[in-house]
Nucleic acid binder design. Structure first.
Lengths: 133, 133
DNA sequence: GAATGTCAACGACAATCTTCGTAAAAGATG
DNA sequence: CATCTTTTACGAAGATTGTCGTTGACATTC
């Protein structure tokens, strides 16, 4: 039957695509040259251009003219992309358990007291949210 | 230059690969037929076999003879795979901030008071761990 | 021992990703 | 205008993924 693909909600990004999206999210936007520089120039100019064209085709970025060059900018928010990626990981790797994900996340990482405090307040907020109404 | 690829530490799993690894992590092991059934049978037998062979080639799974069939089992632990995936997401999407990841994780999800309590105690443990030495 | 059923191996195929080379447009400079 | 430089467009090539069809091995059953 081979399931048609049509529009369909966005799948995850591949490694290289994510590299490029990461730059755009961080910087807000970028020309091909700027993105390439941000990547450390270890990829060719046309490669970066091609990836941006593919991402645009997929609806992940847009562009506007700026002088002779194009300025690319993200069309999908990082938080939404992150949410989808996390859902996938929670379901497929941590059997739906956010706790286990959190445990793995904090394993092997160092946190300041302030960071931990802020994470606690995130949990506080969630708890209050779920309280009644 | 084209960086040689040789051995290199494991990259992430693709969607279909992750489907299959997910089954093996959950069940502990499986024959081709078992994995296929767990996937809902919407993929052909040879497809599942092929994916397992590819995963084996990558070192993600192993197999042993069981009667006439092979029994496949994971060689990479789910927690390690999860850790790598999380690192990638933290760095590329959340700009290195585990807090922001946590905020996104708990957004749009419902948690019981017990779950939140357990997540708090995970943070407690991390805090005590980092206290002095 | 011939037919049937289960299973792995092999190879084909299309789709996608990633990499560029080359060409072409278009402004800048002599 | 001829030539450089910057930039996009086109398309090809290699690698990987995901899908199977076919074949052949091997065991079970008549």
């Amino acid at each position: 039957m081979t399931r048609k693909r049509e529009k369909q909600e966005p799948k995850g990004f591949t490694d290289r695509e994510l590299d490029i999206m990461s730059v755009l999210w961080r910087e807000g936007s970028g020309t091909v040259t700027e993105v390439r520089e941000a990547l450390g120039e270890d990829v060719g100019y046309t490669t970066v251009l091609k990836m941006l064209q593919i991402l645009e085709e997929k609806g992940a970025v847009g562009h506007e003219q700026e002088g002779r060059a194009y300025r690319y900018f993200p069309l999908v928010e990082s938080v939404r992309a992150g949410g989808r990626a996390l859902t996938r990981i929670v379901n497929k790797i941590f059997h739906g358990s956010a706790e286990r994900l959190l445990a793995t996340l904090v394993e092997d990482r160092e946190f300041s007291a302030e960071e931990i405090a802020r994470m606690r307040s995130i949990l506080d907020r969630v708890e209050r949210r779920g309280d009644d109404g």
